[in-house]
């Protein structure tokens, strides 16, 4: 049974339905997409008793206002944000029972960038190439709009109220070097791992541009275009690293110094302008 549960009073800055992303289309140039912070997505689904891959709202920063149309279980994970229900602060990382007529808002972000909202039953959504993940840039779906009604598949089942601990979001990333490590001298590689890099304002779901100590190439920044992944660290000609995220392109022609290990990728979803990032080298 489909049930209307939330009405969008204010969509906020940029709110998207996201699941774990698309598999099997990268050979046609389609990025994987999905939540940038997949750990937060999976945790929020756990809290509301959903399969890990159920679509949730990925809410950028503050400003969203949602009116509850029917009682439902929801939860919030991701950014360390101040969430209000009828002007009273509620906890994130905990199952919440919200009653019809209540107003949900995010008023402040203490740290992080993206808050995930999950609802018991999962949000009803269209599938595009096997995934509900929205990617407006490639004409897949739309961001949340004012007056939009969100529905779920669930009935009125009761679920347990549970909580989880917010994971570590320290901006330190373990990197497996390659495949274009031959483009850099050992001095430059050391420099990359020794210094910290600041997240610039060039930041979206495709990538994060960093600013810091310039990393020089032995000859040039260009390589023959090759596959890149979520977590690839490219060094373009200006020597300033770019980290590719969930909506990042599938192939790239800038030298890739290394790729962030899978266990640390989720933290990239919470890195925001001004944050300092450090890297360490692992064998993987």
């Amino acid at each position: 049974m489909i049930r209307n549960v939330l009405k969008v009073i204010n969509p906020g800055i940029y709110t998207l339905l996201q699941d774990n992303g698309r598999i099997g289309y990268r050979n046609f140039g389609v990025p994987i997409s999905g939540a940038v912070d997949k750990k937060a997505l999976n945790q929020v689904n756990y809290l509301v008793n959903n399969p890990a891959n159920s679509p949730c709202l990925e809410i950028l920063s503050v400003g969203i206002e949602l009116l509850t149309l029917d009682d439902c279980y929801i939860a919030f994970t991701g950014a360390n944000s101040t969430i209000l229900v009828d002007q009273k602060i509620v906890k994130s990382y905990e199952t919440l029972l919200i009653k019809k007529g209540q107003l949900i808002t995010i008023s402040e972000i203490k740290s992080g960038l993206r808050t995930y909202l999950g609802v018991n039953g999962g949000f009803v959504s269209d599938l595009y190439m096997g995934s509900a993940s929205i990617n407006e840039q490639i004409l897949i779906g739309n961001r949340l709009k004012r007056d939009e009604i969100l529905s779920t598949y669930n009935s009125h089942n009761e679920i347990d109220i549970i909580s989880l601990k917010r994971p570590d979001y320290t901006n330190h990333y373990r990197v497996i070097v390659g495949p274009d490590i031959h483009k850099f001298s050992s001095i430059e590689i050391k420099k990359f791992f020794k210094n910290s890099y600041k997240v610039t304002t060039k930041l979206n779901r495709m990538g994060i541009s960093l600013y810091g100590e310039v990393i020089s190439h032995i000859d040039s920044a260009d390589v023959l275009s090759h596959p890149v992944i979520f977590g690839s660290i490219q060094i373009p000609a200006d020597g300033q690293p770019i980290i590719l995220l969930a909506d990042g392109q599938t192939t790239g022609g800038y030298a890739v110094i290394g790729n962030i290990c899978d266990e640390d990728l989720y933290k990239l979803g919470q890195a925001k302008t001004g944050d300092l990032i450090t890297f360490s080298k692992i064998n993987g």
Binding site: I176, I229, E263, G284
Partner: peptide
């Protein structure tokens, strides 16, 4: 070469 934790990258040529 290993690309991140869960990708195998195979390069046949640079041209």
């Amino acid at each position: 070469s290993k690309m991140g934790s869960n990708h195998v990258f195979v390069r046949f040529s640079h041209v």
